[in-house]
């Protein structure tokens, strides 16, 4: 698992590549929460185009980031989610709280509107 981020206005754009399971969620959580503290970002935008696997630990991590972001009036958006991951998004009800978009342009349009 690799994680990188950049800031676009008040949006923290997070690129994750590889597999998201319980072993990596703590690292992802600490990384994002510390970046949020260091910047004035309120929204979190996840690029999932290189995420090949995610289990329910990843769902817990995303719900946690949603809770934090929404406390500050921010949103969480995920784009480029593969078919296998979409199933776990569906059964967990993640779609109800986290917006999923096809690409970065749609995501930015949504967050900036």
């Amino acid at each position: 698992m690799n994680i990188n981020c950049k800031q676009l206005k008040n949006i923290l754009c997070v690129d994750i590549s590889g597999e998201i399971d319980h072993h990596y969620t703590e690292e992802i959580r600490e990384y994002i929460d510390s970046k949020l503290r260091q910047t004035n970002c309120i929204h979190i935008l996840f690029n999932f185009s290189d995420v090949s696997f995610m289990d329910s630990s990843g769902i817990g991590m995303l719900i946690g980031r949603y809770k934090n972001a929404s406390m500050n009036g921010g949103k969480v958006v995920v784009f480029s989610v593969n078919e296998a991951l979409k199933r776990i998004f569906e059964i967990s009800g993640l779609y109800k709280i986290i917006t999923v978009k096809d690409n970065i342009n749609e995501s930015l349009k949504y967050l900036e509107s």
């Binding site: 329910s56 630990s57 817990g60 991590m61 719900i63 967990s92």
Partner: peptide, 15 residues
């Protein structure tokens, strides 16, 4: 308190 989703068994049952 540990951000667990509580979906583990549900995922196993579904998949």
């Amino acid at each position: 308190e540990e951000e667990r989703s509580g979906m583990g068994f549900t995922v196993m049952e579904t998949f």
